Amino acid sequence: MKDSSIKNEYLKKIKLLHKYNKAYFDESKSLITDQEFDILKKQIFELEKKYSFLKHKNSPSKTLGFKPSKNFKKVKHRVPMLSLANAFNEEDLINFEKKIINFLSLSKLEEIEYSAEPKIDGISISLIYKNSYFVQGLSRGDGKEGEDITENLKTIKDIPKIIKVKNFPTEIDIRGEVFIQNDDFKNISEKFANPRNAASGSLRQKDPK
């Protein structure tokens, strides 16, 4: 395959990824499944690894998530909000384990224990508490800057406005996931395509009410 054809195929995938990211992060719409999205990202990574001349500012190797919406104030994360890599098959898991063994300088004969849990499909958030009070909440955004969605997060009763426990840090950044249970989603299913879109759409309303 000629370099020009390879580059065109690469740019086509980058354009698709950007389109899906914009819909996902800016419009709270999922145009493809998570698995299809992850496969597309993997294809881009593989092309970049194979052909060193392939580079683009919107490549997933250069960016994370999507730029914060203009509807909300941008705030820089004190520590970048990164994401986890995916494993699609046994080979990916074996390669991951090799990296762990090398990083920790372990023997190849040493066993590594795994724990697994269901993946919650929601919205990553950062909750900042000062002197026990919830003072600011941010979305992931592009990983470096997030959207200030504090007022929207205050409407979630499961997020405490104040935490009074012994030896609680003077200032702390708590990160987690906002999601909607399937049973709760049934009440608003006419407005949103799925629970993840409902969580995202609710948090990114201009009017938190």
Rank of each mutant, 00 (worst) to 15 (best):
G122P: 01
N8A: 14
N86H: 15
F192S: 03
F185W: 04
N95T: 05
I188Y: 00
F25H: 09
L31R: 11
K15V: 06
P118W: 06
G141P: 09
P60K: 10
L17G: 08
E145D: 03
I120V: 15
E145H: 02
K22S: 11
E145M: 04
F185K: 06
Q205D: 04
S83A: 11
N58E: 10
G137I: 05
N167F: 00
D38S: 10
I162D: 00
E117W: 08
I44N: 08
L47V: 02
F72A: 03
K209F: 14
F134Y: 14
I159K: 04
F103L: 11
S105H: 08
N167V: 03
I94V: 14
K73R: 11
E27H: 11
N8I: 02
L109H: 12
N86Q: 10
F179E: 00
Q205Y: 06
Y20G: 01
F45W: 13
F45L: 10
L64E: 14
R140P: 11
N187Q: 11
I149A: 05
L153Y: 09
K57W: 00
E9L: 10
A193Y: 07
S189A: 13
G141C: 02
K13H: 06
E48H: 02
I159T: 04
M81Y: 12
L203Y: 08
S139K: 01
I159R: 06
P68C: 03
N21L: 07
L84W: 07
K76T: 13
S132T: 14
N152M: 06
D38I: 03
K22D: 10
K55G: 00
R196N: 03
V75G: 06
K7V: 09
Y10L: 03
E27K: 09
A116H: 03
D183I: 11
S4D: 13
R140L: 07
K67F: 07
H18M: 02
K166M: 05
G122D: 04
L16H: 10
N8T: 06
E151C: 01
K191Y: 02
E27V: 00
S59W: 06
K209R: 13
V178F: 15
N167S: 15
L11K: 03
E91N: 09
E147S: 14
K57V: 13
E177Q: 13
I44Q: 07
I120C: 02
F72W: 00
